[in-house]
Every structure is written in structure tokens, then in C-alpha cells.
Design a protein around this nucleic acid. Structure first.
Lengths: 239, 239
DNA sequence: TGACTCAACTTGTATTTACAAGTTAATTCA
DNA sequence: TGAATTAACTTGTAAATACAAGTTGAGTCA
């Protein structure tokens, strides 16, 4: 994993500290080295360090306290409703298995259930489509459908998505970073397909999330629909 | 409405521009004055202006484009899942009516359905409790229960919450700002009480949000539970 | 006319410096 | 001993400056 590919310094620092937290170098409750110490370590100045820390605060990795320091909060929980981490990193990888229901393939857009209008270009390109089932502790919890425009992503179709975060693949392989997005949440009743995949009975309430994610690549959006059995695993988020 | 009560400059600037956007001084699609122009207007420097703009970007009021400028996006939508605006400002005030089901009163904490453990102090103080129903276009959409510790909030019990944002009252009357929080979302089936208030039939799926909000006052948290009929109004958020 | 160049904007990143304000622990003084 | 003070930390805010990089439109030249 190479860093420093023309990334601005504050992002480099952010990535390093972030990795340290998710790798357990810093544990929950620890206090990070002071900003001045981090300046020395990373050979930069406080505004740069602070910009990196701001981002970690915003995403919930740390909290800061004036006069005290930066307190490590651990890897943020939730399914990326607010933090931008993908599903994999959000709920913790320990007991999460990803099963591919439909392998990535090129097909026509399926606009049913899609809450957002497609752009003209996107419609022309066609669509890369796949479906995944996320299983936690042997219980299926998330069933999600992802669609993205079929722009030139070399070898994407043949990549193995199991146990890997889509966001990580996009970031490390294609230099595409998810920068934001919008979503609609609603409660629905499980239909036949969802009943089957999520192993619930008829009339079971399901959390339905319809998202459009925007990326660092101009005009490249991801569309995804997540169906969540929130009975055992409520969706958790900080903001 | 007085500003500049020892607020840092970047927050003052943030509040001014934010108000201009929500008041329609800047409309969706407009381009804000350049950072240098804003420096001149507010008699400050770029880092300060940029810090104010960063916050507006983060909350979805504007987007920035290098070489172009800051594009106004309008008042962010959603019910404060991600932005910190309260329900009132989030869905637009036009057709929103707030009905008080239970007026603010001091009572014991009701810990059923509360997803977060209470702190010792909070339990001792007792609790200010109220229930509200939010009606949009004559349809009840949100039913929410709010509990907060009964610390010294002068005259809060007798305040009229109708058509006023709780967040605004806290901010303007008590100088308490909501700074963040956490929440759990899940889909449930409407129980008898919810069926009645939200006017839905038995077995109707409902979005249940359990939140703990933290404020600028150390140790003062708000607890709220929101039940949302997401059939007509999906919850919308940007991040 | 039409394509190209370039200057004048815009925001993005980074350094340096300064002081304010909150926290902590050692030190001092009664 | 024990309370109060203080010094040495921490993060928070702010200014002044510099250059990089993306966008735009006016101007030039063929």
C-alpha cells in the first residue's frame, strides 16, 4: 500500500493516524501525541496537523479537549450514514462476511426503486451492477444493490469484492475517493426477495436506504440501495 | 437577535453567511463573493473566512470548486440526521405544524426505549419531558419524545415550543449549542400509541430514531426518540 | 473567423508567528 | 499537612504571506 502519491500533506498525516487507530496502535481512551509533537514527527506545522486532526474529529476517530489533548475514540461505529467509511469498516470486520449475490456485470440501469434521476452520460455508458449480502454472526443483516456508470475501470468486473470494501478498492486501485453524497431513509415491509435474503418473515419491518454517493472524479456517482434488518443491529451513527 | 457575544470571528462570519442563505439573500446556484472579497467585507483574513466556509460546506449550505468559487446549495434538507439543524429548519417551515402532545413538565426519567444509559447526575436532577407531533400538509409525520436533565433552565417549562425549534431556543435563550451526538436507527412496526398519533394502520412500518445529543454545556445531553412515518416523507440527508 | 495564448481571476495548500484559554502537576507558603 | 499559586504544558483562534492549481474570458495571431 503506497501512500504519498501527490496527496497533500494533511491528508497523508490524516491517513497515517487513521490507520494507526484502526490498527490498534492507538487504543480507545489513549491520548494522541500533542500537536507540536506531531509537527516534529511529520515534519510540518500546526495548521497542517490541525487540518488532519479536524478530519479525524469530524469522522469520530478522536475527540479534542482544550488544554488536555486529542482523545482516541476508536474506529467509528455505524454504517456510514454520517461518517464516510464504507459498510465494511463501519460495523467492524470481526464477524462480517460478505457474500456476493450477483457478481459485478455490465447491464442496463434498473431505475425501479432508484430515488435519483440519472444523468444523460450515465445512461449512455451503461451500468456496472452487483448485489451483496452482509452477514454478521451468521445472521444476514444487510442486502445491498450497487450500480455505477460503466466508465473505464480496468478489470473491475473481475475483482473479488468479498470481504473487501468497495470504497477501499476504488481508493487504492482507481484513485477515486468518495467525497460525500445524499441518501433517503425509510421504513418498509420486506418483500418476497428481501424475506428470502434477510431470512425474515412476511410483514417484517426493514430499513431501506437509497443513496447517491459522489466521488473525487467529476461526474462519477455511485448509486446504492441498502436493505437492513435493523432488529438485531440498529444502525448507529455519530455526527 | 444579537450576534458577537464573544463568539470567535469565524463563527460570526459563518452565522452571517448561513443566515443570508436561509433568508434567501443568496439563492441556490448563486456564487458567493470570493474569499478575498469576504475578507474585505468582514475585515479579516482568508484562513478565518475559509474556516467559516468549511463549516458551511460540511453542513451542505455551499459547495466549493477550485478556480470557480463557492456555489450556494440552499438550506440543507433532512431532519438533522447529519446536519445539526433541528426538525423545524430541516424540512422547511412552510407546511410544518408542531403540536404539543405533552407540555414540558418535570418528571421521573422514562428509561424504556432509551438506548443510552443515564449518568448519575442526570438521574438525580430529574427530567424535563415533552412530546411533540409534527404535521406536514395536514399529515402527521413525526412523533417525538424529548427528555433532558432538569438543570437550571429558567422558565423553560413555560416556554411555548409550538412552531419553534428546540435548538434555536436553547441557543438563543440559554446559550447552549448542540455540538454533536449519536443515534440508532431502526425500522419497527407501529404500536397502538403510534398508530393513533401518526394515523396509520396496524402493521405499518415506522422509522425509529433514538438519539443522544451533546451540547456545548459540559455534561448536558438531550435524549430524544423520533417515530417517523417515512411513507410520504422519506428522511433525507447529505454527508 | 477560429483556434490559441495568457493574464487575471478563483480556491487549495503550507509556513510562520502570536497570543488566548483550559488543564495539570509541581512548587510554594501558611 | 494542606490549600493556593504558578509554571509548563495542552488546544483554540487569528494574522500575514506565499505559491500551486483550476477556471474564465479577453486578446492575439494565423
Amino acid at each position: 500500500m503506497r501512500l504519498n502519491k501527490n496527496l497533500p500533506q494533511y491528508k497523508v498525516v490524516y491517513e497515517i493516524i487513521r490507520k494507526h487507530i484502526s490498527d490498534g496502535v492507538y487504543l480507545k481512551g489513549d491520548i494522541l501525541p500533542s500537536e507540536n509533537e506531531l509537527c516534529a514527527v511529520h515534519q510540518t506545522t500546526r495548521p497542517t496537523i490541525r487540518k488532519a486532526l479536524d478530519r479525524l474529529v469530524h469522522e469520530g476517530y478522536i475527540k479534542k479537549k482544550q488544554g488536555k489533548g486529542s482523545i482516541v475514540m476508536g474506529v467509528p461505529q455505524g454504517v456510514g450514514i454520517l461518517s464516510l467509511s464504507g459498510t465494511t469498516s463501519a460495523v467492524g470486520q470481526e464477524n462480517l462476511i460478505t457474500e456476493i449475490i450477483v457478481k459485478p456485470e455490465i447491464r442496463q440501469w434498473d431505475t425501479t426503486n432508484l430515488a435519483y434521476p440519472l444523468l444523460n452520460d450515465e445512461e449512455e455508458f451503461g451500468c456496472i451492477y452487483f448485489e451483496r449480502l452482509r452477514i454478521m454472526n451468521k445472521q444476514p443483516v444487510f442486502y445491498d444493490i450497487t450500480m455505477m456508470p460503466n466508465i473505464n475501470l480496468r478489470r473491475f468486473i473481475s475483482r473479488n469484492l468479498e470481504n473487501k470494501s468497495l470504497f477501499n478498492i476504488l481508493r487504492t486501485m482507481y484513485d477515486i475517493e468518495v467525497t460525500g453524497g445524499e441518501q433517503r431513509l425509510m421504513a418498509i415491509l420486506a418483500d418476497k426477495k428481501i424475506q428470502e435474503y434477510l431470512n425474515v418473515k412476511e410483514g417484517h419491518p426493514i430499513l431501506h436506504i437509497n443513496r447517491k454517493l459522489e466521488t473525487s472524479r467529476e461526474g462519477f456517482f455511485l448509486y446504492s440501495q441498502v436493505y437492513c434488518n435493523s432488529e438485531k443491529y440498529a444502525i448507529f451513527g455519530t455526527f
